[in-house]
Simulated assay, not measured.
Amino acid sequence: MKKICLLLLPLLLIIMVSCSRENYVESVEGESKIVVEGWIEQGDVPQVILSRSIPINATIDSTTIFNYFIRSAKVTVSDGENEEVLSVKNENGRIPPYVYSGSKMLGEIGKAYVLKVQYLDRVIEATTSIPSVVPIKSAAYVKVNPADTTGFVHIEFNDFVKEKNYYQIETRLDNVEPIFVPALYGNLNDENFISSSVSLQITRGIYVFSKTKYKPYFTDGDLVYIKLRTMSKAGFEFWNSWQNEIVNGRSPIFPANSSLKSNIKGGIGIWQGYGQSTILMQTSNTKRI
């Protein structure tokens, strides 16, 4: 027998993750786990989404699922010098709409950030830092046949050979997707690069709540945000295990039977700092932001 845990990601938003029998027994006999998905990018405020894991015998629909979001926790982020208590904001147009956000503290490269979540009688903690930014060098919209109305985006960047780097590629279709979505096979370990000059094709990720049928490519006229993020080994292991669940399970709702990696003490999920480079592209026209 297995348990189903609810993991809230800002990118795929809701993923059902199969957990071990031991976790199932613990959930039935004790309390559900607190699920954390938190991030801080350089130049931006910290953001955290909280939920409770869902037992396998629970009835879940578009209404009851909101009962598992946590909106009354005390969430604090510290950089060793300053500390900020995050406030819950309701962001219309995205699911889940409840995000704990900072307003003063901005992420800085090289700094460490400690997350502390206090909810009822539980305390959850995690630590992360923001690695160096690796800029996107160029992006191009490529078609197999010039007469096609669809194609793939290709990007280029230069890996820092004197640094150990882990990457994630994300995209967001303007006016279609409210959040950035991880590209399929977009989690990269630089030990697999054959050159410091990296060129690759982006395969769109699966956005769970899309109103249109999934397609791995882009279409003429699409306005696309492309983001290259650097992250820690812990972040890479988390997102790589997530990617394996999507690919092996063949469904973003019911992935395969292994649990996702986590760097959260007292809960499950991820707290990760990111360096990021983002460009805006429409067909072959690109603009760095």
Rank of each mutant, 00 (worst) to 15 (best):
K261L: 14
Y225R: 14
V144T: 15
G235H: 05
A73D: 05
G266R: 03
S62D: 13
E177L: 05
S20H: 07
V153Q: 03
L184H: 12
Y113K: 04
Y113P: 02
R52I: 10
G80K: 05
I155D: 01
L228P: 02
N187V: 08
V161K: 07
E22T: 14
S32N: 15
G38S: 11
S138Y: 06
V88D: 05
S78Q: 09
K74T: 15
I60E: 03
D121N: 15
I246F: 12
K2Y: 14
L200A: 01
S199F: 07
E26D: 14
P182T: 04
V75H: 02
V208T: 14
E22S: 15
R250Y: 11
L106I: 11
I226V: 11
V123L: 05
Y24I: 07
F193E: 11
L188S: 05
A58Y: 04
K116Q: 12
W271D: 00
V75T: 02
G221P: 14
L86R: 01
S195T: 12
N244E: 15
S138D: 08
E91W: 02
P97F: 00
N257E: 09
T63A: 14
E29P: 01
E245F: 09
F152L: 13
K111I: 11
I54S: 00
I289E: 11
G102L: 00
P131F: 01
T278E: 12
S197K: 13
G273H: 00
F193Q: 03
F152E: 15
E163H: 10
E156T: 13
S72F: 04
F209S: 10
D222W: 00
G151F: 03
T278K: 07
Y119A: 03
D174Y: 12
K162V: 11
E177H: 04
S27L: 09
K287P: 01
G110E: 10
F236T: 03
I109Q: 10
E83Y: 02
I246Q: 06
L173T: 06
C5I: 05
K261C: 13
A126H: 02
D61N: 08
N57H: 08
H154P: 05
V123Q: 01
L280Q: 11
Q282P: 05
I268V: 15
V28F: 10
I130H: 00
E26I: 08
L7S: 12
K213E: 13
S258Q: 15
D220H: 08
V181M: 09
S259Y: 04
I60T: 04
G235I: 06
N165H: 09
L115G: 02
I130R: 00
F193W: 06
E191T: 11
D148C: 10
D61I: 05
P255K: 10
Y119Q: 04
E81Y: 13
E31I: 05
F254E: 08
